[in-house]
Amino acid sequence: MSLFLASVGFGLVTASVLAIAAVGFSVQFGVTDVINLAYGSVMIASAYVAYFVNQLGPGVSIWLAMLVAAVLGALLSLVINKYVYAPFQRRGMAPIGIVIVSLGMLLIIEYTIQAVQGTGNLSYTMSQGPTLTFAGLILSGVQLAIIGLSVVFMVGLHLLLRYTRFGKAMRATAADRTLARNCGIRTDRVVTLACLLTGALCGISGTTFAINLGSFGATSADLFLVMILAAVFLGGPGQPYGAMLGALVIGVITEVSAVFITADYKYVPAFVILLVILAVRPRGIFNAGAIG
């Protein structure tokens, strides 16, 4: 029983990391119409930048480094979308072509990191904080911080999308770009800002992912990308709230399966869920029809 509760605890942490990543992925897809398979590699690139900042001196906190990672994630996402995907889209390339381009970008980013860094794994210098026990869940301070951070981002994103002019313009642009332009919304600028925003989420999720993993390498996010896809497709692509829910389901199922099956196969249920969704309802289970 306690093992189960512990796994639920881990699940919540994984779900928190996944939620940040999946929401970023899903909103990015909604606005740009690109299934960006290079997303995981941008996460790792950001995690690396956080590592270098973290190693600058003994006093540099990983949480500060995370901010720098967010900036890098934002810039990298913008550059990829604006100078790679968007030109291909303007040329009228089919979605499948863009997916192949994004696979190419995945190789470029991931292995540039590996070329610089080598194949070894890295770890941040940080304290895990005090261990806390709460209702049978045992979590370290860092894990709690990750959960807290994720909750803050989800609430923040909710407020942004619902109550700010920019957030609404972003949803309007995702829903119908032509009509948004008719309303006088400068959609190019909205897309740019949305890429920066989702890129920042990507950078932060990359860093929290690396923290949660303990040690990470250039290809560490390859499997995590599939979990992101599972969460995103479960919630319906382009749906931020669906992605949150999808992340919670996939994250908890994955960690709980680590107990009941074996740790080696913990990802398998998520994959099977994704395949079933793709085959049965590719628009998502929690999808109410449009961006909510």
Binding site: R165, R171, A175, D176, L179, A180, C183, G184, I185, I291
Partner: peptide, 24 residues
Amino acid sequence: YVPQVDDVFAPLTVKENLEMGGYL
């Protein structure tokens, strides 16, 4: 200009649609 089809933002609420109309 009101187009024939695709004339509102379907996922947005009525109020939000009006706000987008007043974006400028």
